[in-house]
Design a binder for these strands. Structure first.
Length: 282
DNA sequence: TCCGTGCGATGGTGGACATC
DNA sequence: GATGTCCACCATCGCACGGA
């Protein structure tokens, strides 16, 4: 019996590490190279303000990449897209996305995609109290729906992507919240998430951080606010809005990758493939 | 409000070692 | 060799957490 249990544990261990090995060649990453926080913003981008013809100028993101020149050092790098969504609630099937923000970590401060989204349903008051996104802001005909924005989002991601290399999306609690939500909305638009999209959950990374010796709190505080406190990060702007959370997460992710001595290999090890979220669709 | 996940506490199991 | 004790390891359970 004990032998059987140990076999099961060994098997689970092997399976859990298997995706990493499978993904490494796909990612085209060199193993063992540390993710140096100082190198995140070295890639050179030129950007322009993107005017949207059919969508309201106040809603859709202002900045789209036009063209970029990568330094030779990062010619082989894989884009790291930090993102966050705001929704009308917890339930993927019942609720809708009200705001989407994404920032390319390699690309410096300017390469962002940010938009409010018309959820086509009422925003509950208790959610509006948290997110500061209410019916007046998003339940308007001039605010685009997710299906309207999806082609722009895909174009933005393509512009960040190195041909033949995957995209790594990074978000807090992406495994349980953002990822399944996004998959659900793709499905609703009869679209499929590209298979070369990989997702890294900073909540999972946070659980691997060493505990602070000064902290007497026995609770497992891995929420974004606690991580910001831990690293002394403060970001200006309206609280609990998507882009503000993205900017916080950018800094937290860089600090965490340093603390965890995260390598590309380790990052890919943490990554979830897009088709993982398909189980949430049924 | 949901629900998967991680952690701490607890108890069971088996191996190593000491003693008779 | 038989028995008892200690320790490491593991499974299970319950609770807290995290997202809007």
């Amino acid at each position: 019996m004990a032998l059987l249990l140990r076999f099961n544990q060994l098997r689970n261990s092997i399976w859990s590490s298997c995706p990493a090995r499978l993904l490494m060649p796909h990612a085209g990453l060199s193993s063992g190279k540390l993710l140096d926080p100082k190198s995140y913003e070295r890639r050179l981008f030129s950007t322009r303000v993107q005017e949207t013809a059919s969508l309201d100028r106040t809603c859709i993101s202002r900045i789209q990449p036009l063209e970029f020149q990568q330094t030779s050092e990062h010619e082989q790098s894989v884009p790291l897209l930090i993102f966050d969504i705001k929704t009308t609630g917890f339930f993927q099937k019942r609720n809708r996305i009200t705001e989407f923000a994404v920032h390319d970590l390699w690309a410096g401060k300017n390469n962002t995609f940010e938009t409010l989204l018309n959820p086509e349903m009422d925003v509950p008051k208790y959610v509006a109290a948290v997110t500061n996104i209410n019916n007046d802001l998003v339940c308007r005909p001039d605010v685009p729906r997710f299906s309207d924005v999806l082609p722009l989002l895909l174009a933005f991601v393509r512009s960040c992507q190195t041909p033949g290399k995957p995209i790594i999306w990074v978000a807090h609690n992406v495994k349980r919240f953002d990822g399944p939500f996004l998959a659900q909305k793709f499905d609703r638009c009869s679209a499929q998430m590209p298979e070369d999209w990989l997702f890294v959950d900073t909540l999972c990374l946070a659980t691997k951080l060493p505990k602070l010796s000064a902290s007497n709190d026995k609770r497992h505080l891995h929420d974004l606010e606690s991580l910001c406190k831990r690293y002394g990060i403060s970001v200006e702007g309206p609280p609990h809005r998507a882009m503000q959370e993205v900017m916080k997460l950018c800094q937290v992710f860089q600090k965490m990758s340093f603390d965890l001595k995260l390598t590309y290999e380790g990052l890919i090890d943490e990554a979830i493939k897009a088709n993982y979220f398909s189980k949430f669709l049924n």
